[in-house]
Design a protein around this nucleic acid. Structure first.
Length: 262
DNA sequence: CAAACGATAACGTCATGGCC
DNA sequence: GGCCATGACGTTATCGTTTG
């Protein structure tokens, strides 16, 4: 499979699937990244999920360098017209599988300084260096767990970018993503995490319901407060009107008395 | 065979955006 | 506004491979 990006500027990168189905603009501000990826890869992903889950067998732990692989999974030797095309592809793959892509190492030519290599890694790649500062007010959560999942790209003489290394395995559970068949796909990859993911999902659903209930209560409370405010305003206005009326009457009676005495 | 180049890892700096 | 979390990427070192 081969992906291409036409146009030289970052503002107008266009991903073209040479398989012929789809092309889309990354820079289109009305689209999210997800929608872009959905456009480009939806068909492939759906096909793959069906294939993966239909057999019921576990996913092979290691994929040979060149073999029959799902269409949306990177493989060694895969070519892209540009580095950006590879980014788009791997980001879509990451989204579909359930992790976040991070752009990592850039290799430059020592001769002319041009980019000749790039690593795209899982965002949990490597380990965070301990902070040497004395006072840390907020302890940062651990985001690097030494995950080794990545692809390595190298620019070949033809100007294309080729996948030279693909590490599929993650050292951590993948995120649960919505979508047809993905749950099962992830569960098959990580059978030991199945129960925990399900438990956390149930907790999440419970908390969502609870927050929705609280939200409704708050909205009712605000409505009640508004109604009370309106009622109070009307009462105050009524009192003010009455006072004014009384003052007017008092003034009129005062004038009448003055006329009579004169 | 030596120099040039590439691959890889470890570590550090900087920029950016969000939180308090 | 300062601090923090995070990503991007540079620097350096080491080792393997390629090339003249």
């Amino acid at each position: 499979m081969e992906f291409g990006i036409d146009g030289s500027t970052n503002d107008e990168i266009e991903a073209n699937a040479t398989m012929g189905e789809v092309s889309s603009s990354i820079a289109d501000e009305n689209k999210t990244d997800d929608s872009l990826f959905d456009l480009v890869y939806k068909q492939d992903q759906d096909d793959n999920i069906t294939q993966d889950s239909s057999g019921g067998d576990t996913i092979p732990s290691a994929i040979p360098a060149v073999s029959v692989v799902p269409a949306d999974e990177p493989y060694v030797g895969q070519e892209f017209d540009s580095e950006a095309a590879a980014h788009v592809f791997y980001n879509a793959y990451a989204t579909s599988v359930g992790f976040i892509m991070r752009v990592s190492k850039l290799s430059r030519s020592r001769r002319d300084g041009t980019a000749i290599g790039r690593s795209l890694v899982c965002n949990k790649e490597g380990y965070r260096i301990p902070d040497k500062r004395e006072k840390i007010v907020r302890q940062r959560t651990e985001t690097r767990v030494g995950c080794r999942a990545m692809i390595m790209l190298r620019k070949v003489t033809s100007g294309k970018w080729v996948v030279t290394k693909f590490v599929k395995e993650h050292t951590h559970p993948l995120a649960l993503l919505p979508g047809k068949g993905r749950k099962g796909f992830i569960y098959e990859q990580y059978p030991n995490e199945h129960d925990k993911i399900r438990e956390l999902s149930q907790q999440l659903a419970l908390e969502k319901r609870r927050s929705a209930t609280y939200k409704r209560h708050l909205e009712l409370l605000f409505e009640h407060i508004d109604e009370h405010n309106d009622s109070l305003s009307k009462r105050i206005q009524h009192i003010v009107d009455n006072v004014k009326e009384m003052e007017t009457k008092e003034q009129e009676s005062h004038r009448s008395i003055q006329l009579l005495t004169n």
